[in-house]
Design a protein around this nucleic acid. Structure first.
Lengths: 252, 252
DNA sequence: CTTGACCCTCACGCCGCGTGAGGCGGGAGC
DNA sequence: GCTCCCGCCTCACGCGGCGTGAGGGTCAAG
């Protein structure tokens, strides 16, 4: 049976223009033409079109699709298997994104937040008056925010200096550990991860291990925090993430 | 804290060119510039970038993303909810594709196939010698193919004519039913769906209800078969799909 | 001062179609 | 046979979202 370009377009839910284009580039040529020049597509053409559309849906460029389809070793079962595999992978990736978003929603609900100096410099770029309103708008409803407000409200100038000094010292030692080539799951790295957690506990808010690992995931998922740590030392966010997870597992 | 365009690009896994482009079109302008003209991005910029990338991943055009982000009513929790919803929908769609592929793999394994005349005209375009090799290559390993070969091998010329006549008669009556405006889940439609199943049973191979519904799904998922039925009457593939499913449920 | 990495603007180009122009083909109705 | 309307043809400009490279300035370390 043979079909016009319009019939094929409707059946396959593509445009006529798309089919013209595929013909032009040799990806899907109609098997025939009428004396008037009308394209005639047969069943094998429709077979091929379906494969093209599936690979397109998966994001393959057309020239690559042509290569795949013209591979003499690829038969129908092979295409089905490959597409199944690619789709499953894509779903897995999107599922990770969903998980990250659910995690962010959960974190917001439970009050997980980063320490203010992970967002703002305590001194230097940090201007409490400038940012207080934004911080309040974003985090004001959370338990962790309430805790850190209550806690930091009592800090003296010396407290802040000490806070900053301890944080920077921790950062220097952590970078040095990375430079030494020690593994992220090693005992030294885990010790520094534990120290990181205790600094949060001490200066900001209660931070149990589940919360600490939640923070660790944010460090790699969120460009802002990736950028913050990677400015101290390239690759730090990822390394710290591993160390925090390893630490939490060990102490569970 | 402020970052250069390179730092941001690395942290967010995008290119510098992309960030230039976003600056150009006003989607994401750096909050500052050095006296030398270098872009300086701050934390709020990185926040916005993350949202931009998420919506891009979901296929939104940039101008639409700008509108969404500049909506005064949209706060962080609202963005998270929307993205969660969109991602879930997208996963659902991909999951359907996986299901369709698994179905096709399963169908192939169990030997579900379309009747030859749904692929080839018995007379007219049909040339057994021309297609036999392709049919054998594609379906030769299946139980249904074996059955139909065994069964049709015994047909006389009169059998083929009768086969064709019954099929065409069925098609005319089905099209007429559609023209009448009767619902696809109505008794008349279901009766014709049952007749369709019995024609397959009689002329080609055993076709239980589970197999019949599997065929019905292929009629709408595969452009070749959509085209075949829709040539008889526009919209027939979808209508028949519903009728077959309704019929199978009723008779279960 | 030199060097190398990173930054700047400018600009051509690509992929995969969307859209429309101008004109021919085909079938149904009169 | 003629007309009309829908569908087909080729041609071609254009778009979105960057990729790539040219030519030149900036910055920090040695």
């Amino acid at each position: 049976m043979a079909y016009t370009v319009g019939q094929v377009a409707r059946a396959a839910r593509v445009t006529v223009r798309t089919l013209h284009h595929y013909d032009e580039i040799g990806l899907l040529r109609p098997s025939g033409r009428t004396p008037a020049g009308y394209r005639r597509y047969d069943d094998a053409d429709l077979d091929r079109l379906q494969l093209v559309r599936y690979y397109r849906e998966l994001g393959f460029p057309l020239d690559e699709i042509a290569q795949i389809l013209d591979d003499p070793d690829a038969d129908p079962p092979a295409h089905l298997r490959r597409q199944h595999e690619l789709l499953s992978g894509r779903i897995g990736k999107l599922q990770e994104m969903v998980t990250a978003i659910e995690h962010a929603m959960e974190a917001r609900k439970l009050g997980i937040q980063l320490t203010p100096e992970e967002r703002f410099e305590v001194f230097g770029d940090y201007d409490p008056d400038e940012h207080a309103e934004e911080v309040e708008r974003r985090w004001g409803e959370t338990e962790a925010y309430r805790q850190s407000q209550e806690r930091t409200g009592r800090y003296s100038k010396e407290d802040w200096l000490r806070n900053k000094a301890q944080n920077e010292d921790w950062g220097r030692r952590f970078a040095a550990l990375m430079d030494s080539g020690a593994p992220a799951e090693g005992p030294e790295a885990m010790a520094l991860a534990e120290e990181h957690r205790q600094l949060i506990n001490h200066w900001w808010y209660d931070c149990p291990y589940e919360m600490h690992t939640g923070l660790a995931d944010m460090y790699v998922a969120d460009p802002r925090f990736t950028a913050y740590y990677d400015t101290i030392r390239p690759g730090m966010a990822a390394y710290l993430n591993v160390a925090i997870h390893a630490n939490a597992i060990t102490r569970a």
